[in-house]
């Protein structure tokens, strides 16, 4: 990428590169990225794209193909996918934008680009073993008992500790070091 100065303004011109697409291709779920012909059926079928102008899955894939790595990884776009898989169902070329975005998320996460909501949720899961420990109060316990259900939920929180060590410590280190 090089800058070009015109009348005192700095503009960055992006030179297309297939490196990012190749990188995504290697991640589980991203294999079909290069099959995309940019026909737009995914976006046409997407509930989110139909509900807001802020989300355009086909555009995102276009950016991956063109190699706009930084922009893609630091944007919220790949985190806005609901993972409803309608795009995957409809794509005639065998591409799953949903899976590609999950793959992009894992790359983004490794480099410290994670929306706060996700960060917090993951932190909770890795500590408690599940999502709603704090939300499980006496009220809920009583409701369960009234229904004849076991109020003890028996959730395991040890296994997630092992996962944190194996998969997330180095992530955390990466985050803290800001890379």
């Amino acid at each position: 990428m090089h800058t070009c100065t015109t009348k005192g303004q700095e503009k960055s011109i992006h030179v297309p590169t297939s490196a990012f697409a190749k990188e995504v291709e290697k991640v589980e779920g991203g294999e079909a990225i290069n099959k995309c012909i940019q026909c737009g059926i995914c976006t046409a079928s997407c509930v989110v794209a139909n509900a807001t102008d802020l989300y355009r899955p086909r555009r995102m894939i276009q950016k991956i193909i063109l190699g706009l790595r930084e922009e893609v990884l630091s944007s919220d776009q790949s985190w806005l996918c609901l993972n409803c898989r309608m795009c995957e169902e409809r794509c005639q070329e065998g591409v799953s934008p949903a899976e590609i975005f999950l793959a992009v998320r894992t790359i983004a996460a490794r480099e410290g680009h994670v929306p706060r909501v996700f960060k917090e949720a993951v932190k909770t899961v890795l500590e408690d073993g599940w999502m709603l420990k704090d939300a499980y109060t006496d009220f809920q316990e009583d409701e369960r008992e009234d229904l004849g259900l076991n109020p003890e939920l028996h959730m395991n929180n040890e296994f997630v500790g092992k996962l944190r060590k194996r998969y997330f410590e180095r992530k955390k280190a990466a985050e803290e070091s800001g890379s």
């Binding site: 985190w79 994670v114 993951v122 890795l126 959730m155 395991n156």
Partner: peptide, 28 residues
């Protein structure tokens, strides 16, 4: 029958962070 000693399946959040962590949570 209640399956005991389980954990979150990893959907959505862990799923977005690391493929293997996700596979492990469900795998368990």
């Amino acid at each position: 029958i209640e399956l005991k000693d389980t954990n979150c399946c990893g959907a959505q959040y862990v799923e977005s962070m690391d493929r293997m962590a996700f596979a492990s949570m469900s795998g368990r």
